[in-house]
Design a protein around this nucleic acid. Sequence first.
DNA 1: GTGAAAGCGCTAACAC
DNA 2: GTGTTAGCGCTTTCAC
Lengths: 342, 342
Amino acid sequence: MGRASPNAKNPTITDVAERAGVSVPTVSRVLTGAARVSPAKRKLVEAAIAELNYRPSAAARVLVSRRSQAIAVIAGNTSRYGYAETIRGIEIAARAEGYTVMITVVESTDEDEVDRAIAATLTQALAGIVVLKFDPPGVAALQKIPPDLPVVALSGTRETGLRQAALDEASAAEELTDYLLGLGHATVHHVRVPPSRRVDGRTTGWKRALNKRDAPVPPLRDATWDPKSGVRIGRELAEDPDVTAVFCGNDEIAMGVMRGIAEAGLRVPEDVSVAGFDDHPLAELWNPPLTTAEQDFAGLGRRGFQLLLQALDGTGDRLYSSERPRIVLRDSTAPPRARDTA
Amino acid sequence: MGRASPNAKNPTITDVAERAGVSVPTVSRVLTGAARVSPAKRKLVEAAIAELNYRPSAAARVLVSRRSQAIAVIAGNTSRYGYAETIRGIEIAARAEGYTVMITVVESTDEDEVDRAIAATLTQALAGIVVLKFDPPGVAALQKIPPDLPVVALSGTRETGLRQAALDEASAAEELTDYLLGLGHATVHHVRVPPSRRVDGRTTGWKRALNKRDAPVPPLRDATWDPKSGVRIGRELAEDPDVTAVFCGNDEIAMGVMRGIAEAGLRVPEDVSVAGFDDHPLAELWNPPLTTAEQDFAGLGRRGFQLLLQALDGTGDRLYSSERPRIVLRDSTAPPRARDTA
DNA sequence: GTGAAAGCGCTAACAC
DNA sequence: GTGTTAGCGCTTTCAC
């Protein structure tokens, strides 16, 4: 009678072996599928596992095998739309492959905070890491990861030698800006979300489109991640009669900008066209429905995990995966109309 | 010379001990702070740790100490607003206390899926689990967690003996409905989000308010989690001239309903008042700004982790923590106006 | 195919 | 205070 009977603690592999009447390594072989086991013993072992409700200890496994089935996701945030969706994509792909997902949030670029977060994460045995290189904390965290650990970066500027999945935001932003210009707007103003670095795909694409058409490049407006920061900017933009089209760094900022424009007494799209970016689930329901670029964040996460997985099993050597967001035209953009001077 | 020199693998506690010229347990004592170590040796150990860039192995630690500094969060979803914010709250509180957070998503109530997810999670050494009992998958998962593991449920119906943090949604929903009734509406229609069980706080509070004022209880409308499901319901509601006020299970559904109402050619709040629930970050920016109840999801997550922590250190025996959402009155609700019959 | 023996990196128990 | 010894639950040799 195993010592498992009284007080029913978690059964160990030894309990299973005793119950099945086989040796411990045989149970291990059934568990891992590493070596062939006779059908008879396999059945005995499986029965014992089921009866005892045995679950192997990941800690013990990791310790001896030096392999882990866990990955960490490092992100500057977990609840904003693009972040949350990306994490969801990673989680789904990881779960399908039997990987456990840990979350590490790094909120600032403060060196101590980044170091502490990375150290705490590396304490766990990890097969690899996925970093959301969406913002400066993500960039800072990426630099601190030891080079021997498989890493995938999501978005951000491209680095040679780095495994990376991305969305071709620059092309989509260029296409969207070009569409507005094509509508007849003399130029397109841009409200930027906090960039991860100096260069930012959305801003780059916007500038590219303006230059191509020889349109003037108006000064950048910087919003924070808070949609409300767009409201003030919207009001300011509404005061300038030269502003007939605005391209916003994301849909939430666009919604804030639209509110600011409404508060100033102007109408979208009659007086000012507004375009966003991301295709947030509410963009379609907005009043008016928002023109934007559809970003498949969940797909980004999925592709990122696959890049990592492929590095882990050595079943591929692709380093880069990029996808182009699709432009979604709705009612918040229209040809310009003559406006009164303020 | 330690075997750590060539090929610089992760250093072990043995490497640190050798380098510092002390025994392995002494290093351990410095690490855990469990016992006093002379200042001289402590300094040596700390220097060795820094020089080798040593990080203890959580796996080895867990194996021998039978204690873990990791928790799992089980959720039906990770990216919808309330879920994402709650997880953020848990993560922040956990990080502050040195805990690692693992995410397990359970998308359906399918017994196999739930079992597999729980089994995979329990493979990891866990100090405890936080379950988002927001939906049927959460409820199903909660039932499968072994009773010896400390658990906290977030929201959901109250169960005796279960550690639980909640938001008093029923009271807030009652207050909101009562406010609409007080505005002069003959009754208030309700669009429900998928409930976690038969009883749902928001629906309960709505019914309570109607009964108190002897207002008729109109048939329930069921939305899915997808905001778009509200659009069709909004159109249907708009066709019924008796509908002058609608209370929606969350803000996103309310936004969908408002769009449906707009598509039917009616105006909010002039023709129909619409109230939501949650105070989504975009509710304030909506056109018109949405009347709602502010739910502190991040606070819910924080309180949930604290309940767990207190059970872990035995520093408290509170089982239940509830907070009441605050009603936020904006422009989407107004007194009723006579409407034409369709 | 199967079992015996060794040992992963750490902490607990116990001497001194 | 500090070192010695044992052993957590597994997988990995290596015999047979």
